[in-house]
């Protein structure tokens, strides 16, 4: 979804949706108002505000999404240990109940805020904003937002983050991207997690998982990680370092970045004139 105005107009559907397009309706009797406004524009306004916070303070904000139990928190624990003294990390944890995950993160010496969503199946930009006020963003390089474990709802809500990270653990099926296309299409990077179990789980084929992801027209890199006993997270750490450097460059140029699937609407509203989608938007 486009953050500039909160709509989902793309270069491909604009001609259908505009006032003079074939799908526009004329008023009859009662007064009709054409709006073409994003249904979640309230959330998107807040998300844009959050993103301004992050950019002003040079923070890279990453949204972690996956099924429950795919190893998001374990990956964060391993990442914090590996980057100790190199990059400063904070974590926002989203779960329906308990402080358990935030306590696991705090045990690694990193600030963590737990959002208990109650019955809500996803985080939204307002919840994240409230959590931000409990963190000192000045002293953070990477903010991880661990979304509620759910392969459906979190994909629909922009939180103001820069990148979507979607985990697929090898204890799930390798056809998850085909079953949950909206979620996996939103991924800027897909992590095949618990990869140390591949030796005993012969029914998960990482190549097949990548094929299902490519069928969604995704160009996102696919990395394998093992965060527990036979720890192997080097490719992931390298991706993180590259992203932190890229965020610093964007901040210096006064640019920002939106997660993958939001590029089309921005291209239209940024009036680039080239007709080419582009993902960088200059800040006012």
């Amino acid at each position: 979804m486009c953050d500039t105005c909160g709509c989902n107009i793309t270069p491909g559907n604009a001609h259908l949706l505009r006032n003079d397009g074939p799908l526009a309706r004329s008023a009859d009797g009662r007064e009709a108002i054409t709006l073409l406004k994003g249904l979640l524009s309230e959330n998107d306004r807040q998300a844009a505000h959050n993103r301004e916070h992050f950019d002003r303070q040079g923070v890279l904000a990453l949204n972690l999404m996956s099924s429950p139990g795919s190893g998001k928190t374990a990956l964060l624990e391993a990442t914090i240990e590996a980057l100790a003294g190199k990059l400063r990390i904070a974590v926002i944890e989203g779960d329906l109940e308990t402080e358990n995950d935030a306590e696991r993160i705090r045990a690694k010496g990193v600030p963590a805020v737990q959002i208990a969503t109650g019955t809500a199946c996803h985080l939204d930009a307002h919840m994240v904003h409230d959590a931000l006020h409990r963190l000192d963003l000045d002293n953070i390089d990477i903010l991880f937002i661990e979304n509620v474990g759910n392969l459906v709802c979190p994909a629909s809500f922009d939180l103001g983050h820069h990148r979507n990270i979607t985990l697929l653990s090898v204890t799930e099926g390798d056809d998850k991207p085909a079953k949950y296309p909206v979620m996996f299409r939103a991924a800027d990077v897909m992590l095949i997690s618990k990869a140390d179990l591949l030796a005993v789980l012969d029914d998960f084929d990482p190549a097949a998982a990548e094929r299902h992801l490519r069928n969604l027209a995704s160009r996102a890199p696919v990395l394998t990680v093992a965060a527990r006993k036979q720890r192997d997270i080097d490719a992931w750490l390298e991706w993180l370092r590259t992203e932190v450097a890229a965020q610093r460059e964007r901040v210096a140029r006064r640019e920002t970045l939106h997660p993958a699937v939001q590029s089309e609407g921005q291209a239209l509203h940024a009036n680039s004139g080239t007709g080419q989608p582009h993902r960088f938007v200059r800040l006012p």
Partner: peptide, 10 residues
């Protein structure tokens, strides 16, 4: 991928 409030009649 649209999610739009297109029109209202009032």
């Amino acid at each position: 991928d649209e999610l739009l409030l297109a029109q209202v009649e009032l």
